[in-house]
């Protein structure tokens, strides 16, 4: 009884559609005519004849590989500064968390577009020192980096999780290490990092899956095109264009399943390798 709403949702909105999209991925379907079975043609086209697919894969991969490690590094660095028993911890923590909370909205993507526009805040600032910056968002060499910066700017929530993890590390370990003459760097490498690996692992998985799914900022900054010159064509954006721009629902389903498999492989791989580097208390 209590489980009924969830069970209904699970079968009608999760399991059913998941299987249906797997079937649709082997068809051509434009919403108007009935789906037409095409076998593995969609997947063959993805693998061999679709330059935009590879482009969007590459863009998404670059975004993940740049934004996730930097975001986690910032989060950990700031968390360690906050964990020194300083005054005003709640205030700092709240200030650093604010961008994470606001960051998913269209308003922030709009702000970002104006920050990095040709006449935006950054260039006006650079101009005070006599530099003339390009229009970052409309330059294919830089547009993706503005999105990476946006992602790093939202380091607040992994920071809070790191902070909670740092508090679990017993203080006397550091004291013992200090007595043995271990330098702060050595303490960080030998105590903090190993004991924090479960939290790092968790944050890395969550942030990576989130980064794979990113959509709104790229959509707003490029006005839905993924431009300039496909430099911000995130995978989800490409899937959106195929499905709702060109109504290629079958092909888009195949794209969705490629993403599902990539995320599944990544997650499985992380869990399998985690036993070699993640330290759990026994």
């Amino acid at each position: 009884m209590f489980l009924l709403p969830w069970l209904a949702g699970f079968f009608l909105l999760t399991l059913g559609p998941t299987l249906a999209s797997l079937v649709l991925s082997f068809t051509n379907f434009d919403l108007i005519q009935a789906p037409r079975w095409v076998g593995t043609a969609n997947y063959e086209r993805i693998a061999t004849a679709d330059a935009k697919f590879w482009r969007s894969m590459w863009v998404t991969f670059l975004y993940v590989i740049m934004s996730v490690p930097l975001k986690l590094a910032f989060a950990l660095g700031v968390a360690m500064m906050l964990n020194r028993g300083i005054q005003g911890l709640p205030l700092y923590r709240a200030l650093f968390y604010l961008p994470s909370l606001l960051g998913a909205s269209v308003a922030i993507a709009v702000l970002w577009r104006k920050l990095f526009a040709g006449d935006g805040l950054l260039n006006q600032f650079l101009a005070m020192f006599g530099f003339e910056g390009p229009s970052w968002v409309s330059n294919p060499d830089y547009a993706l980096y503005t999105l990476v910066v946006l992602s790093i700017w939202q380091f607040g929530s992994p920071m809070i999780i790191f902070l909670a993890g740092l508090r679990q590390i017993p203080q006397d370990m550091y004291e013992a290490a200090s007595l043995d003459g271990a330098s702060p760097l050595r303490q960080f490498v030998k105590i903090t990092l190993p004991l924090l690996t479960p939290v790092i692992f968790f944050n890395a998985i969550v942030q990576t899956i989130d980064a794979f799914k990113a959509f709104t900022p790229a959509f707003i900054i490029s006005e839905g095109t993924g431009g300039p010159v496909d430099s911000t064509l995130f995978y989800t954006l490409y899937l959106y264009q195929e499905a709702f721009g060109y109504l290629r629902m079958g092909y888009a389903s195949a794209l969705a399943w490629v993403l599902v498999v990539i995320v599944a492989v990544f997650t499985a791989f992380s869990f399998l390798t985690s036993r070699y580097w993640v330290h759990y208390d026994d």
Partner: peptide
């Protein structure tokens, strides 16, 4: 207490990992 509780719970956690793209198009059609 109900039959297969752990099984359903594991499935529920599994849906956390499933990217929404997988259900997007059939849901739209529905």
């Amino acid at each position: 207490q109900f039959k297969g509780r752990n099984f359903w719970f594991a499935l529920m956690l599994g849906t956390l990992m499933l990217p929404y793209h997988a259900t997007l198009i059939p849901q739209y059609v529905l």
